[in-house]
Write a protein that binds this DNA or RNA. Sequence first.
RNA 1: GCCGCCUUAGCUCAGUGGUAGAGCGCAUCCUUGGUAAGGCUGAGGUCGACAGUUCAAUCCUGUCAGGCGGCACCA
Length: 867
Amino acid sequence: MGRYNPKVAEPRWRQRWDEAESFVVRDTADSAAAPRPKYYVLEMFPYPSGRIHIGHVRNYTMGDVVARFKRAQGFDVLHPMGWDAFGMPAENAAMEKGVHPKGWTYDNIAAMRTPLKQLGLSIDWTREFATCDPDYYGQEQKIFLDLYRRGLAYRREGVVNWDPVDMTVLANEQVIDGRGWRSGALVEKRKLTQWFLRITAYADDLIDSLQTLDRWPEKVRLMQENWIGRSQGLKFHFTTTSGAPAGFDAIEVYTTRPDTLFGASFVGVAADHPLAVALAAQNPDIAEFVAKCRQGGASEVEIEVGEKLGMPTGVSVRHPFQPEIELPVWIANFILMDYGTGAIFGCPAHDQRDLDFARKYDLPVRPVVLPPGAEASRFAVADEAYVGPGKLYNSQFLDGLGIEEAKRAAIARIEAQGQGQGATVYRLRDWGVSRQRYWGCPIPMIHCPSCGVVPVPDSDLPVLLPDDVQFDRPGNPLLRHPTWRHVACPTCGSPAERETDTFDTFVDSSWYFARFASPHSKDPVDRASADKWLPVDQYIGGVEHAVLHLLYARFFTRALKEQGWVGVKEPFAGLFTQGMVTHETYRAPSDGRWLSPAELEARPGGGFVVVETGEAVEACGVEKMSKSKKNVVAPEDIFEQYGVDATRLFVMSDSPPERDVQWSTAGVEGAWRLIQRIWAEFDAQPDGPFRAPDLSADGLGLRRATHRLAAQVTEAVSAFRFNLAVARMHEMMAALRAHPAEGASPSHLAARHEALSYLARLIAPFTPHLAEECWARLGEQGMVVDAPWPEADPSLTEDDEAVLAVQVNGKRRGEIRAARGLADAQIEAVALADADVQRHLEGLVVRKVIVVKDRIVNIVAVPKSPD
RNA sequence: GCCGCCUUAGCUCAGUGGUAGAGCGCAUCCUUGGUAAGGCUGAGGUCGACAGUUCAAUCCUGUCAGGCGGCACCA
């Protein structure tokens, strides 16, 4: 008799798993012979910041529960781990602390590997790699050259988002509310020559295939769909009639509402539009306005205010359907150069922005869509544009048509006139991947003065990062390196220069899941291994990657497939996005500074006091754990105090996994107690052997509880409802307590043995160390990790007698017991005979009786009529 | 502004068209050779508000309120 001591038990079992190589995947050798189906579980790999946090613990425990569960169910499971190791923080550390990014990164990896291994994850560590390993990024360069040869990578000058703090370019996706996603600095617009990946080539497939991803959260699919932002419309040109500079005979616009063309009252162009630029060169007023728009666009303030600003250009264009009508061309601040054609026609009656603009500059508002039930002579648009359904009017050949018909008719007419055609436009833009940084994968290109851009030959790969670099000032150290960039042109041999930009780190994470299939292959991916393991069956990570990483990875997988490296186009068949770990925050009432939980002491009767000062403190809200709010807990400390299993168990309980879970000391203590209670039941069990469980005797109730538990845990884990599984384990403890070992009959003991044997295997995905200890205590063969998942006996999961509630007019009035599946008429009779029910039926006439099998009886009764 | 999610016990949250649940907290009691602990029992609920569908609504539908998240001059 004794308490379960995780400090002793946990390291012992980890060592046993290591020695047995329990989690090493036997890859190609048995892939043909083994009949086991494969299952690839992957959690989003971590950035090696140097410490793990509770969020990691939750993420990796979820994956581990799935991996161990599938393993026990007989799947050949791949569950690898790696490091997303390139990126800015390493360079920041280099600048701040004078350490080399490489050393800093690998030290951090080592520091994080220890607690991750301590978690007892069923990971095949032989497949571990970091994206900053030359072996990995060399393969990435190979992939990039494939993309380049296939025209999916190209270089062009473009207006880019420049982060002045990180001194680098950011992708559109990395700009959030006008600020850099990492630095938080206001992003500026700059013109630079950049490498781009042609993700837009797959826009349609990326959007259309979303519906095949039926094991992805609806929310994420919706976010991707919105991000790609496909719209159908019409691209056409207006011919200019007067005032246009040379070369501007026409202005091309894009619209999704060609039906409203007869309501057009102006044409607008973006401040960056070539026409605006050309006019600015001649006209100082226009130049000033254009400059103001550019600033405004960056400042974001104008957008918040929503004020529409415009400047007439003096240019006029002809209406395509009404040659007698000319429309003025304006430059307007609400038109974006990088969407559509950077020019629009304004129909104020049916577009709120155009209406705001028209009211401000006193332009005509001409309604052309009549809402259902409205009268043409009286309908007018005031301050709100009409965007609803209706019939066209004031529109010549479109009159009387519905909106969709009118769109088709207008497009057909424009096409017939040769002035344009129907078009699909996307919000998604090509992915700019150049970063002016050192700690990233070098882009394997060479700039030759005579040959131009030349790819590094395959035989010269990988292009390695030089180690001898200085971080004494901001900017890219590769540019300043004395020798690294100077190289002979592979084509002509004359002096040339290497590309000094490196890849966006999202490139690194766009294919790592494929590399795990064959982490040591000489090629990026070994096709046979990829065919065996891909796609990832269950991917698990934070919802913050719903757009960026997941979209890039889907794009990369398509590109890899076309190159023949892999056979699938969707990388992740199943996706689960887990919630965050939160914690209460506390701040001192006196000076408002944040206090860490360690500085506080619980006060009897609720609330906390500061240990040092005795000052009373109230909790001020539950928030995501962050250093700034001091509401963090270090996983290592929790492991030390409660053990790894209690930590794992707690992060899996309480909250459904897709939701946030609130960390609390009480919660871990609850998990700790459950572990102790489980162990106590195993500890109390006398040594066997026991004869086969006897159905006739007092063990039946326990056997039912056991098999119900097996069924429930299996279902809960399959459905990612880990918290439910834990709740059922709590309930199981009540059943075990009701059937104590002490003084038990042999059949009773046998039923207990079965219960414990099942329980050890059912808890194994959650608390694997405890499970092994329990398994061994029971005297079972081998380790739990190699034991098959327990099957529930269907004949034991259901009681043969059901308890039915009896309602009278929808209110519960009594309870009856009846054999399962008993005929409705018989149940009705029993229910009506029940004393409680009889009492409630006094003075009533039964109108109808509804019997729901094995669940409930509802008696509908009305008062007796007086006669 | 648009889209999505949430609102159930003091707290954190499960759950179901048919008998309202768990953990923690709280109270009472037991144990004091599992003891920086263990256990029994109990109190505590208009299931956010209103309306509808139904024999029956916490659950389905609609409207509203409050909270959270994503997107946002995307033509």
